[in-house]
Design a protein around this nucleic acid. Sequence first.
RNA 1: GGUCCCGUCGUCCAGAGGCCUAGGACGCCGGCCUUUCAAGCCGGAAACGCCGGUUCGAAUCCGGUCGGGACUGCCA
Length: 473
Amino acid sequence: MTVRVRMAPSPTGFLHVGTARAALYNWLYARHNGGTFIVRIDDTDLERSTKEYEDEILGSFRWLGLEWDEGIEVGGPHGSYRQSDRMGRYAELAGGLVESGHAYYDDRSAEELETLRQRAQAEGKHPGHYIRRSERKADGGVIRLSIPQDDPVEFNDLIRGNLSFAPVDIDDFVILRSNGTPTYHLASTVDDLDYQITHVARGEDLLPSTPKHILLTRALGGSEPVYAHLPLLFGTDGKKLSKRHGATALAEYREQGFLPAAMFNYLAILGWSPDGETTIFSREEAVEKFDLVNVSKNPAAFDPEKLAWMNGEYIRAMDTTVFAQLVRPFVEAELGRELESDEWETFGEIAPLVQERTRLLPEAGNQVMFLFEDFDSYDEPSWDKVMTKDGVAAVLEQGRQVIEGLGSWNAESVETALRAMPEKLGIGAGKTFQPLRVAVTGSSVSPPLFESIAALGQGKTLERIDRARAKLG
RNA sequence: GGUCCCGUCGUCCAGAGGCCUAGGACGCCGGCCUUUCAAGCCGGAAACGCCGGUUCGAAUCCGGUCGGGACUGCCA
């Protein structure tokens, strides 16, 4: 059997990281099995669905590298992959189910149903006791599926094993709304059938709906796909993932400077691992080893800290020229202008040193801003903490002389010259270099000092020292 | 309330009866390196929810219990 899986986002919001992970697992399963990965748009909720969200979601899939073989914007042998284009199909099938006795019209109001529910509970009966009815009594309203009350609905979930649901616990759910549009249950089930989906891997929140989908599938004369219910994603505190835990939209991570490869790896490791020892792995390795049956049953906590660490791993592993190119837009955005070609070269000089200490791309930008922009604020507290104002002044004066007297200009010559200072001043290396670092970069935390000074240039370095001395008073 | 799912370090993953004095990763703590911050290296604290049962032997099987979660919409 050729594997055909699908991802069916509803364009009613930005792509949530949980949905992204579900998409990722579907994609991995398809690639691992040489199957087909389909993206369809579940926009039966016409009120809330928008084209903007749809574009955003598709863009996020592409960013993650989840290219799809069939579906929206790609096409395929089954017509439109947008549910709003297939409304007629759903209504027709729902009507057919009424004809065949599998479903019925129901024009009872919500109040009526609530009354019946309460009455059943008051009498100690199943809440749906008086609600369920198989005989046709109305010509309008919604269409509900009539649940056969004989056998339990059983199925084998790829992740959770054998599951069984008693028919009394499955209510006669609505498949077609009174306005003639399908509910999620109907549209999704019909599409899975029409597009010949073989495996449905989706969030565990849909586990209780699965018996409904199975019964609907059978009523439509089809046979159900294999299901795999993925564990849900939570915040590190075990609560539902929300803004409090950081971003929930995949696009936000992209904007924050996360790499798609790192995000891919992190999402994959959140509920699955190739062997229990390996944490960092390539897309190819994941494809090679992935299987839905090995996905964890436990809910997973989305930890932005670990994601950031992983992003740093990917940044350090990449080619330095690629790294520099990725950082460039962040620097230019901060600067509010484009980098001159000589500035770009300057940046290139210390890019390798910056790369080592970067977890997120924008951080890299911040580390090199001192090369392109003057500043007025200094990390002064750290000066005072370790030494007196006079001590700092002495270091800066001495440093200025050393820099000014330098003939050849490169990191080695700068280092050799500055290294002689501590002994001359009779203080430690730290007390010598920190004031210089702050004077030149404005911060007590910066890339390595000698290389930074070399990249900045002799003239500018002297300028910076003078500015700092003036500031010191 | 009802139905269902889940339960190994703070967090993620490994473990499918003896290889477990429970392994890897993030984070945390300490050390080395060092001009700062990182990175790197070394070391450390840290978990099988609980109670029974099966077995020579259980994190692994069974039952119960407790805890967490999802669903219970003419939303998906």
